[in-house]
């Protein structure tokens, strides 16, 4: 019995792209070249990684810090930069209260410091730029979606892309000055004081929409909420990719 196994259910979530196992297994040195403040709690960290093999928008990496005694701490982070940023990558990180890794990067790290990264990792949340992309994020969940938006702009892709990004206030909106007509910010504690709802997304499904591939990224609570809205609007569950920030 050597056939390929396909589960007998209607909701099969397809894989996306093959991942380079060599890249995933190798730690590379990454030198911090720039720190940019995005919001009061969020900064972007730009690293030079000369051997970086490239990535697809939406992929993540693992970042490792090592102390003098050999103790290590490692975390997964989404890539914020688009693939065409030769030899450089950018991460945009929340300063997590008590965060061992993000806390170090926000308060101790400075330009010239070296960390280690391995990746890119996981092809599931990747967007190669092939299908219409409906992107829905909240807070720092916008980071992998911004990589997709940047890719879309750099390559001047004709395929439709729409971004809905939820934040508490204008001040908390990451990349707030970089959005164009493709983006709808939803501010939950300012202006209309509303959460993302069906009427925000409904225009994307006029006449059924262009056949979206939906990418949802944020806290688990936001991901549950946003994915239910999409299902209610007719988005097929097997065309919804979710990345929840644990």
């Amino acid at each position: 019995m050597s056939e390929t196994f396909t589960p007998p259910t209607a909701f099969a979530v397809p894989g996306r792209i093959a991942v380079s196992n060599r890249a995933a297994a190798t730690w590379q040195r990454a030198v911090l070249t720039e720190i940019r403040r995005e919001t009061p709690r969020v900064s972007t960290f730009r690293f030079a990684v000369p051997g970086w093999q490239g990535h697809l928008p939406g992929q993540h990496l693992m970042l490792r810090l090592t102390a003098e005694d050999g103790y290590t701490a490692q975390r997964h982070y989404s890539l914020a930069s688009p693939p065409d940023d030769s030899g450089h990558i950018e991460l945009t990180l929340d300063h997590v209260e008590g965060g061992e890794v993000s806390g170090f990067l926000h308060t101790v790290a400075r330009v010239g410091d070296a960390v280690e990264v391995r990746g890119p990792l996981s092809g599931f949340f990747a967007w190669p730029g092939d299908r219409p992309a409906l992107l829905v994020g909240a807070g720092s969940g916008v980071v992998p979606l911004m990589s997709m938006l940047r890719h879309h702009r750099q390559r001047q892709l004709a395929v439709p892309l729409r971004l809905f990004v939820s934040a508490r206030t204008r001040e908390d909106l990451i990349y707030g000055d970089q959005y164009g007509d493709e983006t709808t910010p939803v501010l939950t504690r300012e202006s209309e004081r509303r959460h993302l709802d069906t009427d925000h997304l409904a225009p994307c499904f006029t006449d059924g929409g262009p056949g979206w591939e939906a990418y949802v990224c944020g806290s688990n609570a936001f991901a549950e909420h946003a994915s239910r809205l999409l299902v209610r609007l007719g988005q097929p569950v097997d065309r919804i990719r979710i990345e929840r920030y644990g």
Partner: peptide, 27 residues
């Protein structure tokens, strides 16, 4: 776990010996 190259200024959380914690994990 065997670490890589030390990062300047990184100290990390207090080392608590926890034999139940696999390498590279946190509680």
């Amino acid at each position: 776990m065997t670490g890589g190259h030390p990062t300047r200024g990184f100290v990390g959380r207090p080392r608590t010996h926890n034999p139940g914690l696999p390498p590279g994990q946190y509680d």
